[in-house]
Design a binder for these strands. Sequence first.
DNA 1: TACCGCAGTGAAAGCCCTTTCCCGCAGGGA
DNA 2: TCCCTGCGGGAAAGGGCTTTCACTGCGGTA
Lengths: 354, 354
Amino acid sequence: MATLSDVARRAGVSPATASRVINGSSKPVTDELRERVLAAVAELQYVPNAHAQLLARSHRSAVGVIVHDVSDPYFAEITRGLQRVATDQGRLLMICNSYRDPDRELEYVELLRGHQVAALILAGSGYHDEAFTRQLNEKLAAYGATGGRVAVIGRHEHSGDAVMPDNRTGGYLAGRELCELGHGAIGVVAGPRILTTTTDRLAGLRQALAEQGRDLPERRIRYAEFDRDGGAEATARLLDADPELTAIVALNDSMAIGALATLRARSLAVPRWVSVIGFDDMPIARDVTPALTTVRLPLVDMGVRAMSLVLGAEALSPRVEVLPAELIRRDTTGPAARATTGSAPRARRADTAS
Amino acid sequence: MATLSDVARRAGVSPATASRVINGSSKPVTDELRERVLAAVAELQYVPNAHAQLLARSHRSAVGVIVHDVSDPYFAEITRGLQRVATDQGRLLMICNSYRDPDRELEYVELLRGHQVAALILAGSGYHDEAFTRQLNEKLAAYGATGGRVAVIGRHEHSGDAVMPDNRTGGYLAGRELCELGHGAIGVVAGPRILTTTTDRLAGLRQALAEQGRDLPERRIRYAEFDRDGGAEATARLLDADPELTAIVALNDSMAIGALATLRARSLAVPRWVSVIGFDDMPIARDVTPALTTVRLPLVDMGVRAMSLVLGAEALSPRVEVLPAELIRRDTTGPAARATTGSAPRARRADTAS
DNA sequence: TACCGCAGTGAAAGCCCTTTCCCGCAGGGA
DNA sequence: TCCCTGCGGGAAAGGGCTTTCACTGCGGTA
């Protein structure tokens, strides 16, 4: 690899001058030398060593991001928002997938700190795990103490800046909607119970039922992975235990899609026999059939806000921005089925009747 | 930020010794000093400066990846394959989204070269654009000349190692299937015509029709963005121009989902009135309703192969691995509708009849 | 004429690590 | 007793870049 001094030698100038030309420094350089340097750069196919540059500049410019998985639509949308702001400000993003592994999360904080990122954004659910939470907070505090900025998205265990989707109200909206549609037996397809996202959404749901003087017994909840297969499997278990269910709340859209798959496999028409509500409103939600009723979260905006917090002026006290959830009514919800026969039909092709 | 010499000073040892302890060097260090160093590291919350490390070690270990968009399921799957191999070998991946912008692609090659990556993988379609292709090849050659390894996925304009999905055969399979089902008027919802992926898939399709003594006129093809909205829009244009269409081939699954949306909006039952075939078999394909018939590409495997090529022994001549396409029959295809009334029905709820 | 200021350039001091090279010392063989 | 070996540790030389600082001319002012 050609180095800066190779370029300088070839152009017959000092490395200092070459550096100035290449980086468009404010220091003036005569046109002749500039030409010679640029020619040498082209001839040698010179590309500056980024590590050396980053080392030499004290300037820290990149921003580190830790998410569950960028290819999960929930995080893809958030990341889109993060990127938008970062790109506008000429920042590079380093994105790490933790796959919801707390240890990996901790490791990535160190890794990113080692890479001298100017700021750190953690997106995703928090954990009901005191030891881990404390460790993470210590690491973040240590990072903050050296001038690093930190923001979290959707996790309240952190003491600094945060952007919070209103998961609780979202759960409430889903619950109220189903109550209003007359559903009595409501099952919940939930994510891992260790995640605060799961418990927050559940709490909202419980509240809605409580307002009707009803409760949500544990036997009507099944916990599984927060993805399509988890949703499919949890729905199957739920139906096995309680065939009278007339509605299912899935705690995210991926799980809802899994739920629809299971319902279809069992020929339980949606929404005729069973209503389904998802959560998040990821883009695919409108394209499944029937189109998914869901609770929308402003995902892109959450990313935008978080990045703005972290790149903007530092506040004296931690800022928490709560972003609202909104119910999007589509075609997977309807009035509770009349308890006529007392059990869902076995018909094979009933799945999309209205 | 604490530095290595801070740690060394605090532990009362030289930076050399501290470095050896921290990196688990093979040089022996007495337990006492080791303890002191580790204690200092913990107290100072020391994290090595990654840039300084990377600069000091000549060792290049990271691998650069350029894709269209990691959150696009096609690339998400490929990336999963890349990750798997990279992680096994303790390599870090630097993933860049080019969003199919040739200039950005060129920039990222430089960026990654500057970051001293050990290898470079470009995934996605090539372009019918001689000037760009030449430029890219020059840059890659320059990189290769300094010891960098390069592999491409799904682009044949490159002279080095390559993993190629068999797009042409895939197109052929889709075409043959529709011919066998008796479809006469076949429309194509295609990606941008500048992409080789588009033209390769089209070529296979043409070949299948040619074997039946038929051709694929340009008026039966609509080019649009390779995503859901592109597919929806292209399908609308196609149907406007040619209401007699009985089948649509979408050149990727995202477009197919868009096509299904448009067909649903127009109350054209699938597959009763119109059959649809997608391409890629991304995970969501089985979850839309009706489940999408599509041409499967071994996406994860493509990633695995490419990473293996690039991290394995260097070959004397460039290797090209062609991975097969496979038709997956699901529920969006069926026999061509009898030309009874001569036009599709207006019924509103016919969309999932079989 | 002496001096000041400034544009343009280069020398060199970092930035923070890793790793080679070298040194002191203790133990073992002759 | 002397020498060789090998272990444990430190000094210092990079690794490639940026940036400060010092220097050289030059035009302009007093």
